[in-house]
Design a protein around this nucleic acid. Structure first.
Lengths: 211, 211, 211, 211
DNA sequence: GATGAATGAGGCTTCATTCAT
DNA sequence: GATGAATGAAGCCTCATTCAT
C-alpha cells in the first residue's frame, strides 16, 4: 500500500512540479520574444531571445519547434491583447464617436510601436492567416456600425477603410516614436476629422479621385 | 604584354578609356539596385543586384565598398526623383489645393511602392542623414505655405504633418498594393478632407487630444 | 511526509517495492528500444525510445547512462535470441544439411531485417566485443562440423565462411525486404549449392583466386 | 583600339583564369568528398569535407548548394567509375565465365569498400533514382546473357540475382575489409560455383525453398 | 579595372545528456 | 526512483565582403 502511495504520489507531484518550471520558462520565452520582436521585428536572432529569456536554445526549441512558431505565438497573443485593449477603450467611451477616437488612441498608443506587429499587418493584409486581425476587424466593424447608425460617421466609409487607417497610422507611430512621440496624434486628429459625417459629402467608391 | 602597353599609353587614353566602362557599370549597378530595392527592400542579397546589373561582385564592390553605400546612393537618387516628380505634379496644378492633392497623388502613385524608400523613411525620420528627404520637405514646405496663404489649409497644420502623412500613406500603399491597389486613395481623400481649412477649428498643438 | 514514511519503512519493503517498478521499466525500455533499433537502426533519437517505452528520459538514462549502453544491451539480447532461434531451427532438422539450410532460413527470416543487428554485424566483425556473435559462431561451428563429418559440406569451408555468408545475406535481406521480400532466398539457394560437397573441388585457402 | 583590346582581352582571360581555380577547387571538393564518403558514409560533417579539400564552407556551397548535391555528384561519379572499371575487367576476359568472375573480382576489389556507395545501393534498390545503378545493371545484363548463351550460367539466374549478389558481397567486403581483407574472395568463389550451369538443376522461381 | 570564386562569421535546428522537481 | 524539461555542442546553410586572376 505504501508502495502504491509512494509510487502514486510522486507521480502526481512529478507531473505538476516540472510543469511549473516549464510554464515559467515558456512564459519567459514568450515575454522575451515579445519584447525583442517589438523592438527589432521578426528578423532577430533566436539566440537573442534565448539569452533574454534566460533559457538555452534547446529549451526554446522544445517549446517552439520552429522560430516561426514562436513568432506566430507572440504575434497572436500581442494581436489579441492589442485588439482587446483597444476594444475596452472603445467600450468605455460615452458616445459612438468617442468610441472610435478612443479606440485609435488606445490602439496606437499601446501597440503600434510593436515592430513585428506592424510588419505583420503589412504581410497579413492580403493573406490573413493571422486570426488576430479578425478580432480587430470585428471591433472596428462594430464601431463603424454604431457610428454610422448615429449618423456620426461619414457615409461610404467602410471597415476596411478604418482598418487601413489603423495600419497606416501605426506606421506613423513607429516612424516618430523615438524623436517625436506625440506627433502621430496630430495625424490621427486630422484623419478623424476627415471621417466625420459633417464633412458633407459621402466618401466616393474605390475609384475615388482626389479632385 | 597588353598590360604593359596599356600602362605605356599616354595618361589621357589610359585614364579615359576605362572610365567610360566604369561609368557605364556604375550606372548599370545603380539601375539594377534601384529595381531590386524597390521590389524587395534593403534586405536583398547583393548577388541579386550584381546579377541584374550584369557585373561581377568585384565591380560592384569597387564602386560601392559597402552594401550600405550602394543602398544610400540609390535611395538618394530615388528620393530626389521622387521629390522632383511630385514637385512637378504640384507645379502643374491650377490652385494651391490641387497642388497638394496632385502632389500626394503623384508621390504615392509613383514611389510609395518602392519598398526600400518607405522602409527608409521610417528609419530616416529621426536620423535624417539622407539629404533626399530634405528635398521632399522643401516641396511640401512650399505647398504648405501656398495653401495656407490662400486660406485653404487648416491653420496649425505643419510641414512635418504633411510629411508624416506622406510616410503614413506610403505604408498604406505598400500594404494594399497587391490586393487592393486603389484602396489607398480613399484614405488620401479622407486625410485631405481633414486638412481643409473649412474644417472649422484649427489643428491644436502637439499635445492635441482627440476629443 | 510520504517520503519520510517511505524512508522509515523496513529496508525490505523500501528496497523491493521500487525495484519491481524499476525492473518493469527497464524491460519496457529494452523492449521499445529493440523495436526501434530493428526498424530504424542505431541512429534513432533516444526520445523515440523513451516515448515508445512510456518512460521519461531520466528513467531511461538511469538504467542506461549512455545511449550506447542501451544499444549494446538490446543488441546482445537480440543477438542471443537470434542465435537461439536459428539454433532451434537447426536442431529440429532431419539431417546435417537440412540443419544448415534451416539455420539460414530461420536466421535470415527472423532477424536479418533487424537494422541495428546487421549494422552492428558489420562493425563487430573486427572488434567482437559483442559476445552475442560468439553464440552464433558456436552454432555455426557445430553445424559446420556435423555437415563436414557427414561429407555434405564442401571441404575447406570454415565457420567464418558460413558466418560471413550469414552477414552478407543478411544485408541482402535488408536491401530487398521492402520491394522484393522473397528475393534473398534465391541468393541463399545459390550459395548453399556452392557450399555442397558435390561441388567437386574443395575450397582453396584465403589466397583463393576465382579462376 | 587599344582600349577595345585592353577591355576585350582581360575579358577573355578573366573568364578562363578564375575558372581554372574554380575547377581545381571543385575537383578538390569532389575528391575530398569521395574520400570521406568512402571512409565514413554519407553522415559526415560537411566541414570535414571542406577541411580536407582545403576550401571554405562558402566555396563548397557555391559548387554544391546542398550537401545532398555533393553526395549525389560523388556517388554518381564513383558509381560510374565503378561500373566502368568492372566492365573493363569483364571485357578483357577470355570467356564468358571468366568475364563474370573478373567482373565481380574487380567490382568488389575496387569500390565495395566505399561506404557511401554500399549505403546507397541499399537505399537505391527500391527507388533507383541513381542512374548509376543502371550502368551496372546493363553490364551485368550482358554478362548474364553471354554466359547463358554459352550454357555456362545456371538456368533461371537473372540479372537481379547477380546484382543482388554484388550488393550482398559488397557488404561482406566492407565487413571484412579491415581485419581479413581477402576473406570475401572465398564467399565469391562459393557463390560463383553455385551459379554455374553444371550445378545440374536450374534455379527455381521466387518461391524457391532451400529444400 | 573587371570578374566571380573564396571566405567565414552567424543564423536556424537537432539531439545526446544532465538536472531540478 | 521517476519525470520530462533544460542544456549546449554540433550540424546544415546563407550572405556580406575580400582576393586571386
Amino acid at each position: 500500500m505504501l508502495v502504491t502511495m509512494a509510487v502514486a504520489e510522486p507521480d502526481n507531484a512529478a507531473r505538476r512540479a516540472p510543469r511549473v518550471d516549464a510554464i515559467r520558462n515558456r512564459e519567459a520565452i514568450v515575454r522575451a520574444a515579445a519584447e525583442v520582436l517589438a523592438e527589432q521585428g521578426a528578423a532577430v536572432d533566436v539566440r537573442e531571445i534565448a539569452r533574454r529569456s534566460g533559457v538555452g536554445m534547446g529549451t526554446l526549441y522544445r517549446h517552439f519547434p520552429k522560430k516561426e512558431d514562436l513568432v506566430q505565438t507572440v504575434l497572436r497573443q500581442d494581436f489579441s491583447r492589442w485588439a482587446e485593449s483597444a476594444r475596452q477603450a472603445a467600450i468605455a467611451a460615452e458616445d459612438p464617436w468617442a468610441a472610435i477616437a478612443d479606440f485609435y488612441e488606445q490602439a496606437l498608443t499601446g501597440y503600434a510601436r510593436h515592430r513585428a506587429i506592424v510588419e505583420n499587418l503589412a504581410l497579413t493584409w492580403s493573406d490573413p492567416d493571422l486570426e488576430g486581425i479578425q478580432q480587430l476587424r470585428l471591433v472596428i466593424e462594430e464601431l463603424c456600425a454604431r457610428a454610422q447608425a448615429a449618423g456620426l460617421l461619414r457615409p461610404g466609409v467602410t471597415t476596411d477603410d478604418l482598418l487601413l487607417l489603423l495600419v497606416s497610422l501605426g506606421h506613423a507611430v513607429q516612424v516618430t516614436d523615438e524623436c517625436r512621440p506625440r506627433m502621430w496624434r496630430r495625424l490621427l486628429h486630422i484623419s478623424l476629422d476627415g471621417l466625420r459625417a459633417d464633412r458633407g459629402e459621402p466618401l466616393p467608391g474605390d475609384d475615388v479621385s482626389v479632385h
